[in-house]
């Protein structure tokens, strides 16, 4: 309604749609699962990415996906530092 720029959510959906072509050529279930994880990671942080309002869509997507992966890592060992 009356908006000029698409919302981050809309831009993200559009980009993920484009990535489906990439996904179609993945050949193992493991790769496909991993790809689904990226997609859900990007969607998980829609609110936070919107708050940034960056004109760089990829920056927001990458940040979301990386954070999603990072928070799935096992807790860091204090001695490893």
């Amino acid at each position: 309604m009356g908006r000029t720029a698409p919302t981050y959510r809309q831009a993200l959906d559009e980009r993920l749609k484009r990535w489906e072509t990439f996904e179609r050529l993945l050949t193992t279930p493991k790769e496909r699962e991993a790809f689904a994880l990226l997609r859900s990671g990007a969607r998980r942080y829609v609110a936070q990415a919107t708050q940034v309002g960056s004109p760089d869509l990829l920056e927001s997507i990458l940040l979301s996906v990386l954070l999603d992966i990072a928070q799935r890592l096992p807790p860091r060992d204090a001695d490893a530092d």
Partner: peptide, 13 residues
């Protein structure tokens, strides 16, 4: 500026 300004309030999931 458009991308930065043309946004609504915060909506979490």
């Amino acid at each position: 500026h458009m991308v930065s300004a043309d946004r609504g309030g915060t909506i979490l999931r």
